[in-house]
Design a protein around this nucleic acid. Structure first.
Lengths: 142, 142
DNA sequence: ATTGATGCAAAAGATTTGCAAACTG
DNA sequence: CAGTTTGCAAATCTTTTGCATCAAT
């Protein structure tokens, strides 16, 4: 279950003088419930279906907050949209996005990470985050 | 100069039954003139400053066209915007984006490319394009 | 002449923001 | 209670579109 994760978020909020409101709890709960990639609006829809009433603005605000705190990670889908995925219990990974069916495949390669760090330091650049996406056709669509 | 490049674009247009209009020429000319990354609106501004009259819509349409044809490449800046850079005579490279001053630094690492290919094939994924961006602080802003 | 291209302004899509009202600590 | 948050709707920002007019072939 996501009880522990929710506790962690609550703790974070409280420690930072942020309030643990019912909306924030609901949003965090949903964010951890899906093991999929979701947009702010996707999450809003799920809330509506469950008769949980939160405003669109709050979803955006809270998701932004959770992202900043590192509980979720946002990735631009390249079509002007943004998708989130929760991070707790996940190792860092990159993404392959199928340009036909929209499927998102996660992958990780330690050497990739290392080379990025190395490239950055060559330019005196300090990496805060990175985004590596491979666009193309997944096994089923190629 | 960019005469050859313009010729190449003109040729491409004609071969594809597209018309070589003064607007398209101007836009292509500007796109090749800057060796920087520019947004559609940046390019529009330059045109205005030079008293070259083109509409915003045409800039967007033409840039999209040039991108599809492979003359320019677009990259999402992560803040909802999109920047272009011309491609002719450029080798492929990735980007570091300074989150403070917006500066874009180009870099390339052959090994990075290889590992991406390898990761893709492990998942039966066929790469059509990729996007690797490092977000952080550049030398001057860190 | 045809048919594609342009410009304008309105539309769209995603996200943000101002502000009064509601709620948390 | 004081100070945050919320919800709403209006505002942004960037890009796209419909359509009448204009221009390239």
């Amino acid at each position: 279950m996501s009880q522990d994760e929710l506790k962690t978020v609550e703790e974070y909020m409280r420690k930072n003088g942020l309030r643990w409101t019912s909306q924030r709890r609901q949003i965090a709960r949903e964010a951890f419930a899906t093991h999929d990639h979701f947009s702010a609006d996707d999450l809003l829809d799920v809330c509506k279906q469950k008769d949980v009433r939160v405003s669109r603005a709050t979803v955006y605000r809270t998701l932004g907050m959770l992202e900043e705190a590192g509980f979720v990670e946002g990735l631009d889908t390249g079509d002007g949209g943004k998708k989130y995925e929760h991070v707790l219990g996940h190792e860092h990974h990159d993404h392959m996005v199928c340009t036909k069916c929209g499927r998102i495949i996660e992958f990780f390669d330690q050497e990739l990470e290392r080379r990025q760090e190395r490239a950055a330091s060559r330019h005196g650049f300090l990496i805060e985050s990175h985004s590596l996406k491979l666009f193309g056709k997944c096994r089923d669509c190629r």
